[in-house]
Structure formats: structure tokens, C-alpha cells
């Protein structure tokens, strides 16, 4: 059975994607229509005054003044040659007070809106490289691997002998709960096996081999709880780590089932 923990946070965006996104968003801002403030703020109201105070206005063209970067073309308080920056609220500054707590300028001014400080994308398990923890590598898919006790297969996905008159996916669900305890919430992806491995005497068998042991693979996601098996060496690993730990021939057979991120 392939038990996976799906990513909890979004993956790291590759540098090229990031640069292209920035380029496109800047282009979009440059080609955006001017913000119709007269529609959102009625003239002469307090809201309009507050909005007006926050904005930074471009300098208007003056007679007899030379503008080295071209004469400003101002319509509705926007230089139409450039992008328009709308300021809706002065961003809070995050400070640390004497007690070591993080406070924001709005808290200092006794306002209700506080600055948002997100949780760290790296966890304690990442720092200690704790492969038993489900809280490591939050942006990656982790897979449960167990070490074969008889040491013929080495590190591999958990496998269970078939009980009579039981479908494959039910057998796998029962097997994993017997091995790792009942305190796991699992969601089986499908009743259809996604791969078949053939073993003969503990080794991956060739096509023509006889007396083979078949291993059908069922995919499942772990949603809550822990895999607790005191006597079993296990680990939650990413695809690259599986490649390092597993036998090369074994990894080749299962590589296409594992997510890159």
C-alpha cells in the first residue's frame, strides 16, 4: 500500500515562473485603466478626503519646465504613461516591545487591525530532520516506507498477505491498521491497483519467472493520526529520499506513481 501525506503548503515557485509572473503583473498594471475614484468616493465626503490624503500624486506639467523623462500626461490624477499605485491603507510596521512580543504600529495606536504574521513554512521536524514526523517538508508529498524485517527487500512500501475473500483495497486498509495502529484516518484513492510488482525469493522477478509472489499496489492518503508501530522501522519520505534509500530496480518500478512535489 502506498500511503501518502499530501502537501500542506503550496510548493516553492521556481525562479523563472516567479520572474515571469512579476513581468506579466507589471505589464498588466501599466496597461490598467485609471481607478475611477469618483465612482467609489463621493466628492466632499470624509471617506473621499481620507482616500485623497493617502495617495501620492504625480507632478503636473508646468509651462517652461523641462521634464527629462517626458511630459506628464495627467488624467484623473494619474500619469497615463505609467502604472497607477493606489494606497488604501498605510501598512503596519511590525515592532518588538521590551517583553519580546511582536506588536504592530496599529496596536500602539490602539487600533483594532493588527498586522498579520504568518506561521513559518519550515518546522521543527525540518530542522532536526525527523523522518518519523508527519510535519516535515510541508510543501512536498511524503510517502510511508517501512524497512523489511527479514531484510530481503530493504526499504519498501508496506505490503500485506491476502486474507481470503476480501477485495484488494479492503485487505490493504485492514493490513495498514493492523501494522500501524487504529488511530489513523486514511482515505483510499481507488479499489483498482495502480501497479503490480512480481517477486521471486524476495527479489524482483523477471517476466518469465515462475512461482512469483505478486504485490498489487493501492494508493491511500493519510488525513489525521499517526503511524505507530513500535517494532517496525518506518519513515515518511519524499520521492528523492525514496530514490536514495530504495533498491534501484524497485524504485524504477514505482517512480511514476510518486509525485514530484
Amino acid at each position: 500500500m502506498i500511503v501518502s501525506r499530501t502537501p500542506i503548503i503550496t510548493q516553492e515557485i521556481p525562479e523563472f515562473d516567479q520572474q515571469y509572473q512579476t513581468y506579466q503583473s507589471e505589464l498588466e498594471k501599466r496597461l490598467m485603466w485609471t481607478f475611477p475614484k469618483f465612482f467609489y468616493f463621493k466628492k466632499g465626503t470624509l471617506a473621499e478626503r481620507a482616500f485623497r490624503k493617502l495617495q501620492r500624486y504625480p507632478s503636473a506639467p508646468q509651462p517652461g519646465v523641462y521634464f527629462p523623462h517626458g511630459k506628464p500626461d495627467i488624467k484623473f490624477d494619474r500619469d497615463r504613461r505609467l502604472k497607477q499605485d493606489i494606497v488604501l491603507r498605510v501598512p503596519d510596521e511590525v515592532k518588538v516591545n521590551e517583553a519580546g512580543e511582536t506588536i504592530t504600529t496599529s496596536e500602539v495606536d490602539d487600533e483594532t487591525i493588527a498586522a498579520f504574521v504568518p506561521n513559518s513554512r519550515t518546522t521543527e521536524a525540518d530542522r532536526t530532520n525527523d523522518v518519523l514526523s508527519l510535519e516535515r517538508k510541508l510543501s512536498r508529498t511524503l510517502y510511508l516506507l517501512v524497512k523489511d524485517q527479514s531484510n530481503t527487500k530493504g526499504w519498501a512500501f508496506p505490503a500485506f498477505p491476502l486474507a481470503s475473500k476480501q477485495p484488494l483495497h479492503i485487505n490493504a486498509e485492514v493490513g495498514i491498521k493492523t501494522l500501524g495502529g487504529p488511530n489513523m484516518k486514511l482515505w483510499t484513492v481507488s479499489n483498482t491497483p495502480c501497479q503490480l510488482l512480481k517477486f521471486s525469493q524476495g527479489q524482483l522477478a523477471v517476466e518469465s519467472a515462475e512461482n512469483v509472489t505478486r504485490e498489487f499496489m493501492i494508493k491511500a492518503h493519510i488525513l489525521a493520526g499517526d503511524f505507530e508501530a513500535p517494532g517496525v522501522t518506518h519513515a515518511w519520505l519524499t520521492k528523492e529520499e525514496i530514490k536514495e534509500k530504495c533498491d534501484g530496480a524497485y524504485f524504477e518500478q514505482v517512480a511514476h506513481l510518486l509525485a514530484e512535489n
Binding site: E135, N183, K185
Partner: peptide
């Protein structure tokens, strides 16, 4: 899909993983 399945977010939640789960 199970209700407990979650969509990846930009930053992790306060409780990253529910460890003491009992069916």
C-alpha cells in the same frame, strides 16, 4: 473526497497535524 482533506495554503495552519486522532 473526505472532508478532512485540505487544499495546500501559502502558510501552514496553527495546528499542522492532528496527532491524537481516534476513529
Amino acid at each position: 473526497f473526505d472532508l478532512e482533506m485540505r487544499i495546500p495554503t501559502e502558510y501552514p495552519p496553527n495546528q499542522i497535524w492532528l496527532h491524537d486522532y481516534t476513529p
